[in-house]
């Protein structure tokens, strides 16, 4: 039926209008950008970890967040980007060891930092920005006693979904850039082996 409101009775036009609205909002509700999903999953798990806090203990929190980190982040790509072009000069076994080291560091830091709950919550901005082929999802950590903290995630398509490749603190400080800078000297002076050792120390330091 063609919807020409002038010919319809008010009730009918009301129904049509209502349906139109309903379907519009249904479409709207169905379109959360798929890039939001991994971010939302990470935020939910972090809050759960904070609520579990002391009961879970460090290792409990690490065990809970580990699989989420695996699903939400593209750890191999993050590792390659952190090392930069010299990645290609590293042997395969060291390459995979570096990915594992970055994973352990990430997991341990999440387990150490998000360890107790005091009414915090995350809001995920429904507006997803495009950065070339990548997506930028902005979140905010709302705290009771402190100012909200803006945390942004850059995601890249990976297989059927999206995975996080960088994290921005206060929308301006990139974790990737900071790590690149932090790791560069150790890598340049001691190579992959030295970096592996230092990353392991760093991860263990976070874990106690």
């Amino acid at each position: 039926m063609t919807a020409d409101p002038s010919r319809m009775r008010p009730l009918a036009s009301g129904i049509v209008f209502g349906l139109a609205l309903a379907s519009a909002s249904a479409i709207h509700a169905q379109t959360p950008d798929p890039a939001q999903a991994p971010v939302q999953m990470l935020c939910d798990r972090l809050i759960a970890n904070m609520k579990g806090g002391a009961q879970l203990g460090f290792s409990g929190r690490a065990a809970a967040i580990g699989p989420v980190v695996d699903r939400a982040f593209d750890l191999p790509l993050m590792t390659r980007l952190t090392i930069g072009p010299q990645w290609n000069t590293i042997g395969a076994s060291d390459q995979s060891a570096l990915v594992s080291a970055i994973r352990k560091l990430t997991v341990n830091q999440y387990a150490a930092n998000f360890d107790s709950y005091d009414g915090q919550r995350f809001t995920v901005d429904p507006k997803v920005e495009a950065r070339g082929a990548d997506r930028l999802v902005r979140t905010s950590l709302i705290q009771r006693k402190d100012q909200p903290v803006a945390i942004g995630y850059r995601l890249r398509q990976s297989g059927n979904g999206w995975k996080i490749i960088d994290v921005y603190y206060q929308n301006s400080i990139s974790q990737l850039a900071t790590r690149r800078s932090d790791f560069a000297r150790v890598f340049q002076t001691g190579g992959a082996k030295a970096l592996l050792k230092h990353l392991d120390d760093l991860a263990n330091r976070a874990g106690h």
């Binding site: 990430t106 998000f114 107790s116 994290v167 603190y169």
Partner: peptide, 10 residues
């Protein structure tokens, strides 16, 4: 409870 697992918050 602290925030940035990733980037040293402080």
């Amino acid at each position: 409870m602290s925030v940035s697992a990733l980037v040293p918050l402080g």
